[in-house]
């Protein structure tokens, strides 16, 4: 089931360094939201705060509110482990488990989540997930080989397969296509379009065309200066952002007149 995400007055810190300040945004269920902005403005940081991966870093913390379908993500009684089981993540750098086979990588999350599963069901799930990530044809003959033996782009698709195998309610993707060729990129974009029928997807991308192609809404993060916190400058439907943005900074960034 897809979920709605409401963020209000979110400040994100690394120890005493305020990395992202004052984010207010509502992300609709069954949509793809793209986050764009220059390097270092806090897109990854914000994304990680949506499944509590941020607090894995020593000293990192957030202030403010993230509410998912009415439930406060940072509530005292909320277990971050449960949060992450529902909100999947694909990282900027591919990170398949090097000690696991391709097969085991795909079902790693399922093994954590569920009780026993029949071998045939697992086989089906692995095939379905790998097909979903457009990797099946390339690896179907070597499912028992280590995941680290794949190319960078293949590894990233393996990570996507691993993330979608657990059927998360929200899928966070941090520049998932930055290591992919155009064909795989298109395949991932098709996949996202398909997945948005069921999940809420938030994707960070440096690729404007990609944001324009796949997303329903787009958020533009920017820095007001060196050492300043990043801010969500504009959040609007993608069409509006790319045709008639409200902010001058957004227009400059999109049209390449940035800096």
């Amino acid at each position: 089931m897809a979920k709605r995400i409401d963020v209000s007055d979110l400040d994100i810190y690394y120890s005493s360094f305020l990395a992202v300040q004052g984010v207010n945004v509502s992300i609709e269920p069954r949509s793809i939201t793209a986050l764009i902005g220059p390097s270092g403005c806090g897109k990854s940081t914000f994304l990680r705060s949506l499944n509590r991966m941020h607090e894995v870093i020593p000293g990192a913390r957030v202030e403010g509110k993230v509410v998912i379908d009415g439930q406060d993500l940072y509530g005292a009684e909320v277990d971050p482990v449960d949060v992450r089981r529902q909100i999947g993540m694909v990282f900027q750098r591919p990170n398949p488990f090097p000690t696991m086979s391709i097969y085991d990588n795909v079902i790693a999350g399922v093994r954590l989540n569920s009780t026993r599963m029949k071998k045939s069901d697992m086989d089906d799930l692995v095939e379905r997930s790998l097909k979903g990530a457009n990797l099946w044809a390339e690896v179907k003959d070597r499912l028992n080989r280590p995941g680290s033996g794949l190319s960078g782009g293949q590894q990233q698709r393996l990570c996507i397969a691993r993330a979608i195998a657990v059927e998360p309610e929200v899928l966070l993707m941090d520049e998932p296509c930055s290591a992919l060729d155009p064909i795989s990129t298109l395949a991932i974009e098709d996949l996202m379009t398909e997945l948005k029928e069921r999940f809420t997807i938030v994707i960070v991308t440096h690729n404007m065309q990609q944001a324009a192609r796949v997303s329903t809404a787009t958020g533009f993060f920017n820095l007001s200066g060196v050492g300043q916190p990043g801010r969500l400058v504009e959040f609007n439907p993608t069409e509006k952002i790319f045709s008639n943005p409200e902010e001058k900074a957004t227009e400059d960034y999109i049209s390449g007149r940035f800096g």
């Binding site: 499944n51 999947g88 993540m89 989540n113």
Partner: peptide, 11 residues
């Protein structure tokens, strides 16, 4: 990288 991969899966 790999520790985060596990944690992000809900480990």
């Amino acid at each position: 990288l790999h520790r985060e991969a596990a944690l992000a899966l809900g480990a």
